[in-house]
Nucleic acid binder design. Structure first.
Lengths: 333, 333
DNA sequence: CTGAAAGCGCTTACAG
DNA sequence: CTGAAAGCGCTTACAG
């Protein structure tokens, strides 16, 4: 591979000048710039980024940690992050943690080894010690998106989970539902707690506090299906179920079908996230939409600003939207 | 950050010895190894990987290029790749190309700039010039998985698309279907051509060649829905539709529902890929399952072997399975 | 088994 | 506007 030396030779200048022509073209004369450009073409030069990174003590790589890459919820967030990152000359490394602390640790280890300049966490399911330790070093910024820690204070980009949930529940109450159950994500997850608070408060506000009934799931299809069966198989079943993810809501739809319970006639179901599939299930799902692309963009902007030493808003709250489709309606008389 | 010099100082040896203790512990005495180990702990040393990579002229990074990260089909393949890569000390950079040649080019550019050691392509939708150029340089290996090029000969890990499709069609024929349509992915995609060949040949073998009817989709929900409507809205509609992806099959399910056509009573639908969702749609989808995890593992193994200068099998064909669920049945009498 | 030294390919004060 | 030189943090023949 040709190096910067070859270019300097071909252009009849020093390597310093070639380097400047590339990084600070305004510091180089027009004529030199042109000679360097054609020399680069001539020898087929591409800068060795490892060498540049070593010299500049940066990697231009941002890691984003996900709980599960197979969840389509994250793809649009990643697109938003990449858009901003690429534009700033950074690349993003996607780290799938799969609830495995060893995996998370391996990704955090990219920081001290100079392979990553910062991390965006899309999950709170990370060993707290890792986060605290990395945060304390303070030479590599950490940003949280979608989720948050209750006990570590990182710059965060989220929606208002409390409000979004309360709004969905109010909608169900307004339809006339009096028995509204919920299937939560992991109950120790802070966003699930927020949602459950919103759920309870909205029920109370509607005079329905005694109907509160929360089951725990894990955001996946299967847990929605299983908890749906449990919820619907009993004697006095709910007339509506609010789920913390679309996948779980779709699992509930399957459970209802299996038990011969018609949606929305005999059961209303609300999901969360508005994944692509929510428009193609039967019936189409009413769900809470998060501005995923924007969450990704903002999170990356925040991280890059931190890297640039600029001040950032520590809590950004983006707005959600309740998308009413066909899985909700008035309860049977 | 402490460097190898700090460790050498603390251990009372040279940096060369520290380096060896890390990379080739067997070349260092027990006592030294121990002193180095505790010195590393003491000073909190983590090697600067950019420096190491520069020196070794490698990046220990493999890029994988996808057509669309939001398609859950790829996640299990990625898991397989990461498993093998991490074990060998490599990391995987996921490149979402989104049918944008500029994106693909940016990822290919990681090769000459020493940011990646090789690329695994999970899509054939890449400007041919890029691939040819990268392949010609021959210092960074390219491996193809799932798809393949008809005109560039890369080591490839695939299934037998012809056979898998023929088998699915034979199954529909054996059920008694005489009008079997298909919704293909992009028709210029080699795997879609293979599948269409398998489809036609199986129809011919069943004495049904005149029923062949192929519509073009793009693998996504929406195109399946639209082509499904087109196929089902006419006078003499098919009694079965074979789709090149589960998402399109699920789109067809929606189209049928909308037209009041019952599945499987009045229409049989077969998908391809066995994504998680195929078990949660209504009805559960009959589909062709690919060994996704294994495809990912094999593709990465192949690439790492190439990197190590070892000989590799240039075409690996893994087996598929027709998973019969509830979206297929005998046609109405 | 160990160390001195060169060098990987860049960038960047410094001097002119 | 340009160049000589130092140095980023490693690794690895080479010599002992």
């Amino acid at each position: 591979m040709p190096t910067i030396k070859d270019v300097a030779l071909a252009a009849g200048c020093s390597t310093a000048t070639v380097s400047r022509a590339l990084a600070n073209p305004e510091k180089v004369s027009e004529a030199t710039r042109l000679r360097v450009a054609s020399a680069i073409d001539e020898v087929g030069y591409a800068p060795n980024v490892a060498a540049r990174n070593l010299r500049r003590a940066e990697s231009r790589t941002i890691v984003t940690l996900l709980p599960d890459i197979s969840n389509p919820f994250f793809s649009e967030i990643i697109n938003g992050m990449e858009e901003v990152a690429h534009q700033a000359g950074y690349q993003v490394l996607i780290g799938d943690c799969e609830r495995d602390p060893a995996r998370a640790e391996a990704y955090f280890n990219l920081l001290p080894t100079n392979q990553a300049d910062g991390i965006i966490l899309l999950t709170a399911d990370i060993p707290r010690g890792l986060v605290r330790h990395a945060d304390a070093r303070a030479d590599a910024p950490l940003v949280m998106a979608c989720e948050f820690f209750s006990d570590v204070d990182l710059p965060t980009v989220t929606i208002d989970n409390y409000q979004a949930t309360a709004h969905a529940i109010e909608y169900l109450v307004s339809l006339g539902h009096a028995r509204i159950a919920a299937i939560s994500g992991p109950v120790d997850n802070p966003i699930c707690r927020e949602r459950t608070r919103g759920y309870r408060d909205a029920l109370t506000a509607g005079g329905l506090s005694s109907s509160a009934h929360v089951m725990e799931g894990d955001f996946g299809f299967r847990s929605g299906y299983q908890q749906g069966l449990a919820l619907l198989d009993g004697a006095d079943r709910p007339s509506a179920i609010f789920c913390h993810s679309d996948e779980m809501a779709i699992g509930v739809l399957k459970a209802a079908r299996q038990l011969g319970i018609r949606v929305p006639e005999a059961l209303s179901v609300v999901g969360f996230d508005n994944i692509g599939f929510s428009e193609y299930c039967e019936p189409e799902l009413t769900t809470v939409s998060q501005p995923r692309h924007e969450i990704g963009q903002q999170a990356m902007h925040t991280l890059l600003n931190l890297l640039a030493g600029e001040a950032v808003v520590r809590r950004q709250t983006l707005s959600t939207q309740l998308i009413v489709r066909k899985s909700t309606g008035r309860p049977a008389a």
